[in-house]
C-alpha cells in the first residue's frame, strides 16, 4: 500500500477536521458523564436533531444563519428538556447509571425514528461558499478547515469557561464532590440542568459542522454516539485533554481507513483502536489526569 503525498494531505487534513468535530460530541458526553454520572446514549442525537432542524428550517426558506442560531437554541432546550423530563426522575434512585443508560437509549430510538419519518434519508446543510485553495495539487474547499477551526475554537472556549467562570468552576466542583459544592452554596440541580444544556449545544454544533461537510442521516446520531463512547474510553474517562487527543487519533484512523481500506472497515478500525488501548492502557491514554 503506497500513500501518495496528495493522499496523505487529504487523509491527515480530513482526519484532523473530523476528529475535532468528533471531539465536540465526545466532550459533551464526557461533561455530562462527569457532572451527572449519566452515560448519555442519546448524546449523538443532539448532533443529528440539530442538523435536521437546520435542514428543515433552510428548506422552509429561512436563511442559513438564523436557521443555525435556531438549531443551536433548540439543542440547548432539548438538552435541558432531557434532563428535566427524563433524567431528573431518576435522581436518588438505585441503579441510576443503568436506568439513565436505558432511558437515553430509548430517546435515541425515538429520535432516530422521528427523523426518519420527517426527513427520510440523507440530507445536507448547504454550507456557505467561502472559496477554496489548492494544497499539494488538490483543491480544498475552505469550509472544511473553517469547520475544524470552529470546533477547536469551541473546545478552547469550553476550557476557558470551566477554568475561569463561576458556572464552569461550579460544574467541575459538582463533578468532583457534590456535597462539598452544596455546602458552599451551589444549587447542584441547576448545574445538572445547565450541564445537559451546554453538553447538548457542544454536540449540536458538531451536528451543524458535520451536516455541512458530510451528509446527515437519521442514524448519524447513533454513529456519533458510538464514536464518542469509544473516544471517551480511549482518552481516559474524565480527562479533557485525553478526550481531545483520542478524538484526533480516532479521526485520523477513520480517515485513513475510509480512504485506503474502504468505508465499511471504518468501525472495525475504530474498535480495533479501542481494543488495543484497553489491552495496553486500560485507564485510557490520559487516565487519571485532567
Amino acid at each position: 500500500m503506497v500513500v501518495s503525498i496528495e493522499q496523505l494531505v487529504f487523509i491527515v487534513g480530513n482526519g484532523l477536521i473530523f476528529g475535532s468535530i468528533l471531539a465536540l460530541v465526545a466532550v459533551g458526553l464526557s461533561l455530562i458523564f462527569g457532572v451527572l454520572d449519566v452515560p448519555n446514549f442519546a448524546q449523538g442525537e443532539f448532533a443529528s436533531v440539530t442538523g435536521f432542524v437546520i435542514v428543515g428550517l433552510v428548506g422552509l426558506g429561512i436563511g442559513l444563519v438564523p436557521s443555525i442560531i435556531a438549531g443551536i437554541v433548540f439543542a440547548f432546550v432539548a438538552g435541558v428538556a432531557v434532563e428535566r423530563l427524563v433524567i431528573s426522575k431518576f435522581y436518588g434512585r438505585d441503579e441510576f447509571l443503568l436506568l439513565t443508560f436505558f432511558a437515553t437509549f430509548g430517546i435515541t430510538i425515538i429520535s432516530e425514528n422521528v427523523l426518519r419519518q420527517m426527513f427520510g434519508g440523507f440530507r445536507q446543510i448547504p454550507g456557505p461558499d467561502i472559496g477554496s485553495i489548492v494544497v499539494a495539487g488538490t483543491s480544498v474547499n475552505l469550509l472544511r478547515p473553517a469547520a475544524g477551526a470552529i470546533a477547536v475554537g469551541m473546545l478552547i472556549g469550553l476550557y476557558i469557561f470551566t477554568r475561569y467562570t463561576y458556572m464552569g468552576l461550579a460544574m467541575r466542583a459538582v463533578a468532583d464532590d457534590r456535597r462539598g459544592a452544596e455546602m458552599i452554596g451551589v444549587n447542584y440541580e441547576r448545574i445538572y440542568m445547565l450541564t445537559f444544556g451546554i453538553g447538548a449545544v457542544l454536540t449540536g454544533i458538531s451536528g451543524v459542522l458535520y451536516g455541512m461537510l458530510f451528509t446527515l442521516s437519521p442514524t448519524s446520531g447513533v454513529a456519533l454516539t458510538a464514536f464518542a463512547f469509544t473516544i471517551v474510553v480511549v482518552g481516559g474517562v474524565g480527562s479533557f485533554f485525553g478526550t481531545i487527543l483520542a478524538s484526533l487519533l480516532i479521526g485520523l484512523v477513520d480517515s485513513f481507513t475510509a480512504t485506503m481500506v474502504g468505508s465499511r472497515w471504518r468501525f472495525f478500525a475504530i474498535f480495533a483502536v479501542l481494543f488495543i488501548v484497553l489491552v495496553l492502557r486500560p485507564e485510557g491514554l490520559r487516565g487519571g489526569s485532567t
Binding site: L169, A170, R172, A173, A175, D176, D177, R179, G180, A181, M183, I184, V186, T290
Partner: peptide, 15 residues
Amino acid sequence: RNLFREMSVKENLVM
C-alpha cells in the same frame, strides 16, 4: 472536608 480534590487550592478557595 468535601474538598474539590481535582481542583487547585486556589480554585477551591475561589469556589
